[in-house]
Design a protein around this nucleic acid. Sequence first.
DNA 1: CCGTCAATTGTTATCGATACCATCGGACAG
DNA 2: CTGTCCGATGGTATCGATAACAATTGACGG
Lengths: 345, 345
Amino acid sequence: MADVARLAGVSAMTVSRALKGKGAVTPQTQERILRAVSDLGYVLDKSAGALSSKKTGFVSVLIPSLNNSTFSETVQGITEALDTEAMQVLIGTTGYSRAREEAVIETMLQRRPEGIIVTGGTHTPRGRTMLEQAGIPVIETWDLPAAPIDHVVGFSNAATIEDLMARLMFRGYRRIAFIEGEHGEDTRGHDRRAGYERAVEALGLERACVIEVGRPPITIEQGGGAVVRLMDTWPEVEAVICVSDLSAFGAIMECHRRGWAVPERLAIAGFGDFEIARHTWPSITTVSVGSRGLGRQAGTLMLEAVAAMRGGTPLAPRRINIPHTVIERDSTASLPRPAVAGRVA
Amino acid sequence: MADVARLAGVSAMTVSRALKGKGAVTPQTQERILRAVSDLGYVLDKSAGALSSKKTGFVSVLIPSLNNSTFSETVQGITEALDTEAMQVLIGTTGYSRAREEAVIETMLQRRPEGIIVTGGTHTPRGRTMLEQAGIPVIETWDLPAAPIDHVVGFSNAATIEDLMARLMFRGYRRIAFIEGEHGEDTRGHDRRAGYERAVEALGLERACVIEVGRPPITIEQGGGAVVRLMDTWPEVEAVICVSDLSAFGAIMECHRRGWAVPERLAIAGFGDFEIARHTWPSITTVSVGSRGLGRQAGTLMLEAVAAMRGGTPLAPRRINIPHTVIERDSTASLPRPAVAGRVA
DNA sequence: CCGTCAATTGTTATCGATACCATCGGACAG
DNA sequence: CTGTCCGATGGTATCGATAACAATTGACGG
């Protein structure tokens, strides 16, 4: 920067001001500086700037996996909201493991983000402590923790599945099973299963049948394997809810291969409203939480929280409950039922 | 850090050394310092460290979109390779736009990454200049540019489709069409189309029929729309190659809906070997470039290049050509043909 | 023509860690 | 017992920008 200043015949401070664009510099000076910058191919060093201004200009986002389209949609939503204010997003993946999450939190905090958005409300004790003591806004998403760390933008995974169950029952299904990954650290998947079991009880359904297959996140292939095991275990089954649209997709494809008509022989529903759910044949009944919108809301809230923090007054904890929608499609359309507005082709 | 030093009764310098673990500190001192660190809940500030040591400890990766599973696999591969050496990955998305890529390059360079991995070999002039002058290792991936900036880890998009065409022809298909996005900035999609056209000529096929639909990246839905237009435009068509597996998937689902048997009425192939390609019914013939392995190789090369750069001698430009594989599956299996080892169920 | 004020620019200290070199204390050979 | 050397630790300068304050300039009213 000193070189630029010399070439433009001004002081480094003026160069700094010119590059921030905040006016306060004569148009001619501005132009002279910008020319010097481009002549020298100079690029501002923001990390040095961050050190002195104590504003790093980025926010960390922790998600379980990049390969899950709903999480990447959430990240996109967050990015959209933050880009407008020139806040950068630093992504970290935890691989559905709390231990890894703890490690990633530490790495992230070493870079001094101005805020951090995590997926889920369950963390290791040390991870939680680090988040609490970081002195920056924290947003937990994709869940509604009972004792949140700071802000929350989420929904109840259990409630989404309860609603879906109610809808299936309303459509006439009585023998409904559930497919998920083995008990592990995927607390969101676990919550959905809890919702399933509560619904079976509440609705007085015949019996709960849960097929567990592989460790989360379960793949398309495992969804296919699970449906075979299900038909073997409980031949009278009429419908099944899969823990995600991806596994529901795998189940449907396996049914095609085996000649089991969907939904006539077996109705299949998923979770998440992935892009493929809408276009699979038959299209997949699912629960949408609007992952991208969720991300956008989290991003907007983060902007507000960061601004408040810069201003010296931390924002009081917010709790935003994202509404979910059961989207009925062709994969659960077999039994006689009234016409419904909510059905999407 | 000064607080920690005081509590442990040593100097800041010793704390710094203890935290880097590089020996050179008495075990007792080490332990005393670590206890002080955890008592105070102190977290190292790496950006300050980066300023003085000139080692930021991260690498930037630019991809067109997070929502494309092949790119996120590449990122995973890169992350796997770099994590081992405690290098962090900073992801930026360019939305298939060169102008946006230029902006993202600038933002990234402001954080002084120790290396940068970009997707494709085509950039704006300024973007290219910035990359050349950044003084750090650059890796271009997913392409084989004729005049690379520095290192290359990629493959020829045109060649992959030429090979796929040859295989389809060998299987007896003669009237083969191509579905892609409108001419835009997706140079990799464009290269694939060029490969298609060259193959039509070289193989002496009947005629080239290209359906263009929407701006890249084309969606599942657009794949479905395109196949309808194709059947309308060229009813004699026997097979079609889609620019990606996602659009191929959309095309297949649309065929199911309309009662066009795949592959009997229309054979369909894709590109990229996405997870869904293997599990769709019928499974989708595609070209695999091993996106994750590509990422891993790029990551490994980057480690080597960064190490060389730290040592003072930049690594001489490497050019790694990733082999591709045509994977024949059920979606192109109709015509009589010999048994083939390469076929995957 | 002078004083006041606002706009613009410059100077200095500082952010938090690490590189580099100096220092100190003890082990060991002669 | 003494000189040498090595391992552990401390002191100081520095990385590249920006905050905070100081200084300069010119405009304008009286």
